[in-house]
Simulated assay, not measured.
Amino acid sequence: MAATAQSIIFHQYDISPFSEKVRVAFGIKSLEWYACDEPVIMPKPDLVALTGGYRKIPVMQIGADVYCDTQIILRELEKRFPSPTLFPGADKGLGWGTAMWTDRVFFQAAVAIIFGGGTPLADDAFIKDREQLTGRPFDIEGMKAASPMMAEQFRAQLGWLEEQLADGRKFLIGDEPGLADASAFYNLAFVRWTSPNGVKIIETFPGVLAWEKHVADIGHGKRQEISREEALDIAKAATSTEEAKADPGEPNGFKPGDAVTVMADDYGRDPVIGDLVSSSAQHIAIKRNDPRVGDVVVHFPRAGFLVMKS
Rank of each mutant, 00 (worst) to 15 (best):
I72L: 01
N187L: 04
V40M: 07
A303H: 08
R169P: 09
K236T: 01
C36K: 03
G52E: 06
G221C: 13
H214S: 13
S16D: 12
G116L: 14
G257M: 09
G207T: 04
A238F: 06
Y186E: 00
L31V: 00
F254K: 14
A180W: 09
R104Q: 15
K200N: 03
M149Q: 04
L179E: 14
P196K: 06
F254S: 10
E230N: 14
E229L: 07
K287N: 04
V307P: 04
I202E: 01
V66K: 11
G52T: 02
E141N: 11
L161G: 05
T239R: 09
Q157A: 01
E212P: 03
L121W: 13
Q61T: 11
D175A: 11
S195H: 07
V105H: 15
G249P: 03
A210Q: 09
G221P: 14
K79T: 15
R23C: 13
T204P: 03
I57T: 06
G253F: 14
S19I: 05
V272E: 03
D46N: 08
S147D: 06
G274K: 05
A2Y: 12
E203C: 00
M149L: 09
P148M: 06
S183R: 13
A166C: 05
G257Y: 12
D14C: 08
R80I: 10
D270G: 05
E203G: 00
R80A: 12
E20W: 12
E20K: 11
V48Q: 06
W193V: 01
R55T: 12
I201Y: 02
A216V: 03
P291D: 07
W160I: 05
E242G: 00
H220W: 04
G257A: 08
A210S: 03
E230A: 14
E162K: 04
M42A: 10
I127S: 03
G117W: 13
R292S: 08
L47P: 08
F185C: 06
Q108P: 01
A35M: 00
S280D: 06
T119S: 15
E20T: 15
A112M: 10
Y34F: 11
G304W: 04
F115T: 09
K21R: 14
T194V: 09
P148Y: 10
E225A: 11
R136F: 09
W193N: 02
K44W: 06
D123E: 15
A146R: 07
D123F: 05
A237M: 00
R23I: 08
I41D: 05
D167G: 09
P120I: 02
D270K: 03
H11F: 10
V208F: 01
R228K: 15
H220A: 08
G118I: 12
